[in-house]
């Protein structure tokens, strides 16, 4: 019963992707280190909030979504807000490295 990240979701085995489902996952890096506890938002093509997760102890995040164009907006302590555009096709798993400024 959650609208937030499942504990350990980014490290769990990938669930099977059916239909138009797709995955965007990756790590957040800040000053050369994996950033734990960074807030990663998934925004749709209109800039609308879809989901938000926090990176785990290894800086990882994962979104189950659908194929299309998305933006990842990342906030972390001591870093400026960073946007990364991501395109993912149906059934694909796209890895992303978010480098914070």
């Amino acid at each position: 019963m959650s609208c937030g990240p499942l504990p350990g979701e980014a490290a769990a085995p990938l669930r099977r992707l059916s239909g138009n489902r797709a995955v965007i996952e990756g790590v957040v890096v800040h000053e050369g280190e994996l950033a734990r506890g960074a807030y990663v938002r998934l925004l749709d093509p209109d800039g609308e909030f879809v989901a938000e997760v926090q990176t785990d102890w290894a800086g990882r995040f994962r979104f189950y979504t659908v194929g299309g164009g998305w933006t990842l907006r990342t906030l972390a302590p001591g870093a400026s807000s960073t946007d990364v555009a991501v395109s993912v096709g149906a059934g694909e798993v796209v890895p992303v490295e978010v480098e914070l400024g």
């Binding site: 019963m1 959650s2 609208c3 998934l42 879809v50 989901a51 997760v53 979104f63 189950y64």
Partner: peptide, 8 residues
């Protein structure tokens, strides 16, 4: 439900 999670 929100796209990223299977839920009730």
């Amino acid at each position: 439900a929100p796209a990223h999670l299977p839920q009730e």
